[in-house]
Amino acid sequence: PPKQPGVGEHPLQFNYTLWYSRRSPGKQNMSQSYDQNLKKVGTFASVEQFWNHYCHIARPCELSGHSDFHMFKDGIRPMWEDDANKLGGKWIIRLKKGLASRCWENIILAMLGEQFMVGEEICGAVISIRYQEDILSLWNRTSNDQQTTSRIRDTLRRVLNLPPNTIMEYKTHNDSLKDNSS
């Protein structure tokens, strides 16, 4: 059964699941091994349940190697093949080292608090820790809905409070699949 808020807790509009993945050096980056590397950290239905998980896990900046946190609506796996994602896409923001923890917190709080105002469009967010830079992405259901994707971009700019020259790139999951980049 879906998780429920506890007595006196503040319910979320949607339940969310937090996932963690880490690529072992030397292994092939195939879809199957990606799926096998995904570890569920927990699911939460209230603001308080979220903090109870969040306060006990490492911050993105503390992770080493090739690691990702994924926070998706409960029932959506953080993979492009999921029904909710297959016609979707993502905004991609490349971050200088040192910004990942703050930006990740800002993006997930905006998601939990329903700050994007795009109905059911948001699927989840990912922070990818890499060697040279970190990559933040926000996934939505419908890549060809330009009004929605523009609205998401504008909210992202506001909640992330990034320098004005930060480049934001939108990519459909279909294109990512074709160029095998993510």
């Binding site: 503040h10 709080l109 329903e114």
Partner: peptide, 21 residues
Amino acid sequence: GTRIIYDRAFLMQCRNSPLTK
């Protein structure tokens, strides 16, 4: 329908609530 919306300040406040262990 009605949406459950929380701003950042409110969510941060809940972090310090007795319900958050």
